[in-house]
């Protein structure tokens, strides 16, 4: 169980994480989705006590991470697979963690097996590992203490298709056993394949969250007009949600008729009005990643606030 509440982190003029709140539940995989620079890694660093939030709180298992006496036994963390001492072997890297946690040495062999690193590979220096092997080693370190919570930052980076499949199955099995998984990614397809719940973050703010089914199915209505910002303002003014879609369209939770009426009342000529096509999440996400859509989004959410 992970509870993030109004978490904010400012670096001088940059607000990397801006009032982020969400919960990751046991038995579920929560996907933390956002484009580059959205604030995913920063959020996860704050969550794991590696940085201090400007305001707000992040809790794991009901406590601040830094208050966990021996966190490796409760929370498996992988923030950056390349942040390992290149001069050590994979085996030695795991042995250090195993000793720190006070675990029997056989756990090292068990996790090596779990992440399919061979004995020969384990004896090589991490410097000579491929990105995918480092990722596996990082996951092995996270799993060492048989934790109930996993926090992984872009764990699929550098994995081949078989590796991605393996990772997906591993996280699924972990959650099915009652564990909590929070993993970040900048790839919607990756998150879609494994997550039960999705939190979408852009420019440090949560822009959408819900179960995958809600986010994917609840596509609502797609409306298009010459001025999407005005359209979004009209819809939110009428009490509906409005999220920018990829190409100047707006998706809303209003029905077809209500959406049309709201636009009409605002004197906006609608150029397209139809049921959402189930890809609203992708469109939201794309909008986040497309610079030209950025101020549309800001204005839309500004109007909603």
């Amino acid at each position: 169980m992970i509870t993030i509440d109004a978490l904010t982190k400012r670096y001088r003029e940059v607000t990397a994480v801006d009032d982020v709140s969400f919960t990751a539940l046991p038995g579920r995989v929560t996907g933390f989705l956002g484009p580059n620079g959205a604030g995913k890694s920063t959020t996860l660093r704050l969550l794991t006590g590696l940085g201090e939030p400007t305001s707000g709180t992040a809790r794991v298992l009901g406590r601040r991470y830094a208050d966990l006496p021996n966190p490796g036994l409760d929370v498996g963390v992988l923030l950056d697979a390349s942040a390992q001492h290149g001069g050590r072997t994979g085996l030695e890297t795991l042995t250090l963690a195993q000793r720190t946690l006070g675990l029997p040495a056989r756990r090292v062999d068990a996790v090596l097996d779990l992440v399919s690193l061979t004995a020969a590979e384990a004896h090589r220096r991490v410097r000579d590992y491929s990105l995918g092997m480092r990722q596996r080693l990082g996951v092995a370190t996270a799993l060492l203490g048989e934790p109930q919570v996993l926090v992984l930052d872009e764990p699929a980076n550098g994995l081949d298709p078989a590796g991605i499949r393996w990772m997906r199955d591993l996280l699924r099995a972990f959650a099915d056993d009652g564990g909590t998984v929070l993993l970040s990614s900048h790839l919607l397809t990756e998150i879609q394949m494994v997550a039960d719940d999705i939190v979408v973050i852009g420019h440090g703010r949560v822009v959408a969250q819900g179960t995958k089914d809600e986010l994917l199915a609840g596509a609502g209505t797609l409306v298009r007009a010459a001025d999407p910002a005005a359209l979004a303002a009209a819809l939110t003014g009428a009490g509906f949600t409005a999220a920018p879609a990829a190409d100047g369209a707006v998706t809303t939770d209003a029905g077809l008729a209500a959406a049309g009426a709201a636009a009409f009342a605002a004197g906006i000529a609608v150029t397209e009005l139809r049921a959402g096509d189930g890809a609203s999440l992708e469109e939201t996400f794309l909008a986040l990643t497309t610079d030209t859509q950025r101020d549309t989004l800001d204005r839309a959410s500004g109007a909603a606030a």
């Binding site: 509440d5 709140s21 959408a208 986010l215 596509a219 409005a242 939770d253 959402g276 609203s280 909603a304």
Partner: peptide
């Protein structure tokens, strides 16, 4: 779709 939505503080 729940846009710009923040979860209620978890009890």
């Amino acid at each position: 779709m729940t846009a710009v939505d923040t979860a209620p503080p978890a009890h």
